[in-house]
């Protein structure tokens, strides 16, 4: 096995799937000759040619809109949106068209498009290179939403997403692109969508996180363990559909829940998790479900450290919940 970072793992997944299935194509701004501004598609055009890996005009609605047409023709496009912050011009195409095509055609058509987009803060990128827009898409019937936290998952989940017959939003934690490293098997393997992973085991509190915040939450859980507080840490990996069984099994054991994400709090994905847990496991709860999230502000430039949850904030949340 080779050690890879997330970018290399994404690149490897694309390479493996393009070798396996000639219907898979890669498109987007700067993804062709240049190999992507984060280098995630480096070398793919050389390997697979300009018909299967190509640069598009700078228009997100066009990237997604034409990808839909290609998928309806039977291809499996994997368009890249350069930053998740720039996805909104394509919002109508994603929400009203991509997500709805199977349903509105009575299952006659399917739109297997995987939209890759780096998301999240912590890179001194200000409001337009730091957003976490996942909740908009989790709210959209017809989409699946996947956010890996590490290279192994990134490759296995991206392969599953490309093979899936439904459209998938694949958000990559750009802060961890090069920072998260790990062993990644060569060749094909897949991680089923909809399955969470338990990263730490403990029986006093359940901590739910995904993407870049998984690393922050893990640091906090390790600090808590050093203080004698044992936590289950669950990496959700797929947000829609999320792994309800893994969550409820843990919550019924611990009775306490801390949810961590860097997107703003109001109507963030944590709200859905919190509501679902309350509906399904209220009598198992020993404390209010706590959300440690970004604030309800635009993403700040100078004070991103204040905005982003860090291990200290998450640890304080765990202690507060356990002490309730």
């Amino acid at each position: 096995m080779a050690e890879m970072n997330i970018i290399q793992a994404v690149n490897d997944a694309l390479r493996v799937e393009m070798e396996r299935d000639e219907r898979v194509i890669v498109m987007g701004e700067d993804v062709g000759r240049f190999g992507g501004v984060f280098r995630a598609t480096q070398g793919l055009q050389e390997r697979f040619g300009p018909d299967r890996v190509f640069d598009t005009p700078l228009a997100e609605a066009g990237i997604v809109g034409t990808a839909i047409g290609m998928a309806l023709h039977g291809l499996r496009p994997v368009p890249e949106i350069q930053f998740a912050d720039y996805i909104y011009p394509a919002f109508d195409q994603i929400v009203n068209e991509l997500a709805k095509y199977r349903y509105r055609s009575g299952g006659q058509y399917t739109c297997p498009v995987v939209i890759r987009a780096p998301y999240g803060g912590g890179v001194r990128g200000g409001h337009y290179h730091s957003q976490s827009p996942e909740a908009y898409f989790v709210h959209t019937a017809g989409l699946k939403v996947v956010i890996p936290s590490n290279p192994y998952d990134a490759k296995g989940l991206l392969i599953s997403a490309i093979r899936d017959d439904d459209p998938v939003m694949f958000f990559e934690p750009k802060r961890m692109y090069r920072a998260a490293k790990g062993e990644v098997p060569e060749g094909e393997y897949s991680i089923p969508l909809g399955q969470a992973a338990r990263v730490r085991e403990g029986d006093q509190c359940t901590v739910l996180a995904y993407g870049a915040m998984l690393h922050t939450a893990r640091d906090a859980v390790d600090l808590a363990a050093a203080k004698g507080i044992g936590c289950d840490l669950i990496d959700l990996r797929t947000l829609l559909p999320f792994d309800i069984e893994a969550i409820l099994t843990s919550v019924k054991k611990t009775g306490r829940v801390v949810i961590v994400h860097e997107a703003p709090r109001t109507c963030g994905f944590g709200a859905e998790l919190s509501a679902t847990i309350s509906e399904k496991a209220l009598l198992h709860l020993e404390a209010p479900i706590l959300r440690i999230t970004g604030f309800d502000t635009p993403f700040p430039y100078t004070w991103e450290r204040a905005y982003l949850p860090d291990a200290e904030r998450v640890l304080a949340g765990i202690e507060e919940t356990v002490a309730f």
């Binding site: 809109g65 034409t66 496009p77 009203n96 068209e97």
Partner: peptide
């Protein structure tokens, strides 16, 4: 025949994508 959508003009990029796919294939 693709699927009809009520929002105006949203089908046009799909047509271009279909045509691009035919060219690619």
């Amino acid at each position: 025949l693709l699927s009809v959508s009520s929002p105006v003009g949203t089908q046009i990029p799909h047509a271009v994508g279909l045509a691009m796919a035919a060219r690619i294939r």
